[in-house]
Design a protein around this nucleic acid. Structure first.
Lengths: 346, 346
DNA sequence: CGGGCAATTGCACGGCTGTGCGACATGATT
DNA sequence: AATCATGTCGCACAGCCGTGCAATTGCCCG
């Protein structure tokens, strides 16, 4: 009297529903499984009539090739890891979104790894990517330990680094030094003589590069230089930097901020707390040109870093590497353009 | 005289490097492949000595289980799709990041699908998720067509919807109506009588819900009501709404904005273009409490919607559904709390 | 020292797929 | 009409893995 697969006792039907398999389609269409496989393989040899039968059966059953199994066989998963800390903030958010879009366009599957900076977390993320046979890993931020590179290398997973100069790996980054030198120069040429940089104590390589290039140029020009730093490179750090730079009697008359987020915090502090005018009393230049930079409250003059361009370059590097793993490391440098708004006009 | 696998002629070594397989580990360790498999399967029966040998060999070769193949066998991929349009903007960015974090914590692989709103794009994304046998799909935004739900249903992929009431699917959303009624009420109780809502023409269900609940409550209280809308629900839309609401001689003295982004645009327009004071001339309430809301330039009174809480609820719903696919649809409603800042004080 | 029991191990299968190769049908050609 | 080339199809294998089952080992105790 039992019907079906004897659902006896407790067992709450553990087995997940199975997707339709090629075997079932073959059966319904009255052909062999090979015919089904060939129907969905471009360039394979199938008679139009058979193809038609298979497609009809597939349609009826709602069949779709199992890309996982296909990947196991073909030794390619199409999975690509995007590794970032705080991927919801500022420029990184735009970069991650752009990467996801381009990766999907080329038929890859973007995996978003939102990880902390601790070595354990990174290692766990990497294990996951290796386990799933990710074809490549794109790193957006931070400074992964050497072991990260080594492990990826060993498993044949190309690593693309964005925003950091990594001589042994493919990388794409902005021309931080050029931009920072230019910032110091335009400030100086506009008659500003007390130049400051607002950076971060826990700076990423990009931040550090911007700080130091600006400082050395400013000093070279003979200007008085100031440094203010916050804990990170976000809004609060901008406030902290502003506090450090504007608590003395003599303060800078121009501040170069290592990120737009820092600039926003610093501008708010300068205007609302210190009660100085921008740009009359203090000129500001930022970096990134996130959408907020054009908001009326900020009108920030800043270096434009196009996330679409950088993401595309990164994907191109990845494709190049996948096509030929033995190529020497390549790098793309995107030169940022200074977008002039109200916070400083040369 | 040929060495190696006869690299004859053009063929540029197409074959991708293969990862280490269990077979190779078995060979090196001098055991059967089963022993290797058991070593990496918790709870399987392996002698400590064998286990040790296997682990040593695996370490030396850099072996890691192929989760793809494991997934094919066990009929579970651990892949979870996160579908969003413009995942880099505002609240959605925080939601997407939080989801990625929680999914990783529970051992799932978050796939970020950055898609447009056209039906074709959504269908392509879904095909991809079906092909890779994603275990569940979390939708952050927009209004997918009915076919989307149908196709997912048919393939046994649970669908979790965030920010939209979807009676036939698991969903988690904010208490938009309660919040919006409260907004109208506190405005009124503070003596404001010309109440406006700033919304969007292409509103998501959340936006629409907020608009209408505010409007009906405001009318019920006997206040004069205004409506201003922009094309989307971002900063520019806030400017547009501000233009619509403040171009006549008689203008609102309190505006409820359907999102923080709208509020920022509207506040900037009101202060910088219309030259009114906030909150003296115009009181503002927003929705979301993104970090920018606490910036000194805005100090926005707004309804707090915690992305961490919403993401966690969504993941819980997903787990529940995966554990028991036959459950009736569940939903979680998160009640937003009004965070008081300078733009309006009850 | 032998027997029984538990632990461990290897074999083989199952879960999906793509594809080389031989078998077959079919149309065209001499 | 016989033969050949061509296009299709199915079989079987390969590519990874987990696991049931039976065989083997090792150990303990009588």
């Amino acid at each position: 009297m039992s019907d079906g697969p004897a659902n006896d006792g407790k067992a709450p039907k553990k087995e997940r529903m199975r997707f339709v398999s090629a075997e079932q389609v073959a059966q319904l269409a009255g052909v062999s499984r090979s015919a089904v496989s060939r129907t969905f393989t471009p360039g394979a040899s199938v008679a139009p009539a058979t193809r038609e039968k298979v497609l009809r059966a597939a349609q009826e059953l709602g069949y779709h090739v199992n890309d996982l199994a296909r990947g196991v066989l073909a030794n390619q998963s199409r999975l690509v890891g995007i590794v970032a800390t705080k991927p919801e903030i500022g420029f990184r958010a735009h970069l991650a979104a752009a990467l996801a879009k381009f990766l999907i366009q080329r038929g890859s599957i973007p995996i978003l790894i939102n990880t902390g900076q601790t070595e354990d977390e990174l290692l766990a993320a990497q294990k996951m990517l290796i386990g799933h046979r990710a074809e490549a890993i794109i790193i957006l931020s931070g400074s992964p330990p050497a072991s990260f590179f080594e492990l990826a290398q060993r498993n044949g997973q190309p690593l693309i680094v964005i925003g950091r100069s990594e001589p042994d790996a493919d990388h794409v980054r902005a021309g931080n030094s050029e931009a920072s030198r230019k910032a110091a120069t335009v400030f100086f040429e506009a008659g500003r003589r007390r130049l400051a940089v607002a950076g971060s104590n826990t700076g990423t390589p990009s931040i550090i590069e911007r700080e130091s290039a600006f400082l050395s140029t400013a000093e070279g020009l003979g200007a008085e230089v100031f440094i203010g730093r916050g804990a990170d490179s976000d809004y609060e750090s901008g406030i902290a930097a502003g506090r450090a730079l504007f608590s003395n009697a003599v303060h800078p008359d121009a501040v170069y901020c290592a990120s737009d987020q820092i600039a926003f915090g610093l501008m708010d502090h300068v205007r609302q707390v210190v009660k100085l005018r921008i740009p009359e009393d203090v000129a500001i230049i930022g970096f990134d040109d996130v959408p907020e930079a054009s908001w009326l409250s900020y009108q920030l003059t800043t270096f434009r870093q196009d996330p679409l361009v950088m993401a595309m370059r990164a994907v191109e590097l990845m494709e190049r590497r996948l096509a030929n793993p033995d190529l020497p490391p390549g790098y793309e440098r995107v030169i940022p353009e200074l977008v002039i708004r109200q916070s400083f006009r040369p």
